[in-house]
Design a protein around this nucleic acid. Structure first.
Lengths: 129, 129
DNA sequence: CTTGACGTTTACGTTAACGTCAACCAAAAA
DNA sequence: TTTTTGGTTGACGTTAACGTAAACGTCAAG
C-alpha cells in the first residue's frame, strides 16, 4: 500500500520526460529505490519531484532547488547549523518577496494592456471570450 | 536635458556587466543611439533594461521578455493583431498568477521553517537578529 | 519465438546567456 | 608624448539542463 510509481508514471503525472527525471537523480535531487534494475519511486520521491518542478517554475536553478530542499530536511539541529539554515532561509525569503513584487507590477501592467485592447475591440463584435 | 547614459553608467546602476548589456542589444532587446562609435542610452533604453532585468528575476528567457515587451508597444492596433496581443497577454497573466501561487506556497513553508528554527534557538542566546 | 513496450546506461549534441580574452581606437590625464 | 581610462568589435570558452541516439535487458502478447 506504500504507493509507488514507475518512471513513466511520474513523467506522465508531471508532464516531464523520463530523461529529466533521471537527470534530477543524477544531480542528487531524488533517490528512488530499485526493483532489480528498474527505478521505483515512492511518496517521498513524488513530493520531491513536485518541489523541484515548483522551483523550476519560479526560475530557480537545480542547485538552488537542492539547497532549498535541504532546508526542509533539518534533522538533529546542531545549533551552529541551525543558524546557517536560518540565514539561508531568510535570504531565500527575501528573494521570493522581491519576486512577488516583480510579479505584482507585471500583472498590473499586463492587465492594463488587456483592458485597453478590450475596449479597443469593443464595438466591433470581435470579443468572444 | 534628455538624460543619457554611457554603457558603464547603466551597468553600474543596474549591477550588470557591459557585456550583458551589449548582448541584450545584439538580441534586439534594446537599441541605443551612437555618438560616433560609442553607445548612448536614453530614457527609453533605461526603461527597457529595467524591464529586461525584472523579467530575468522572474525566470523568463530573453525570448520571453522580448515577446512581453512587444506587448507594450501596441501602435496602430489593427484589429486582428490586437486579438493576438490580447491572447498572448492573457496567457502571460495566467503563467504569472501560477507563479504567484507557487511563491506564496514556498514563502509559507520557508516562514514555518524559520519560525521553528528560531524557537529552537531560543533559550540559547544565539538569536541576534 | 519474435516483436513491442518499457526500462537501463553511456555518451555525445544543443541552446541560452553570458564570460573572457585579444586587438583595436580615442580622448583625457600625467 | 606616453599612459590611462573607457569604449568598440570579433571570436572562442563555459555552464546548465536537458535532448537524442546507440546498444542492451525483460517480460507479456501475438
Amino acid at each position: 500500500m506504500t504507493e509507488s510509481y514507475s518512471i513513466s508514471d511520474l513523467a506522465g503525472e508531471f508532464g516531464v520526460t523520463a530523461r529529466a527525471i533521471r537527470f534530477y537523480e543524477e544531480k542528487g535531487l531524488i533517490s528512488p529505490s530499485r526493483n532489480g534494475q528498474d527505478r521505483v519511486y515512492g511518496r517521498r520521491d513524488y513530493v520531491r519531484l513536485n518541489l523541484i518542478l515548483r522551483g523550476k517554475r519560479l526560475g530557480f536553478s537545480l542547485a538552488d532547488i537542492e539547497e532549498m530542499m535541504a532546508l526542509y530536511n533539518r534533522d538533529g539541529e546542531h545549533t551552529e547549523q541551525a543558524r546557517v539554515t536560518l540565514d539561508k532561509s531568510e535570504a531565500r525569503l527575501e528573494a521570493l518577496k522581491q519576486q512577488r513584487r516583480d510579479i505584482d507590477e507585471t500583472v498590473d501592467e499586463l492587465e492594463k494592456i488587456c483592458a485597453e485592447i478590450k475596449s479597443h475591440l469593443k464595438g466591433k463584435g470581435v470579443v468572444n471570450a
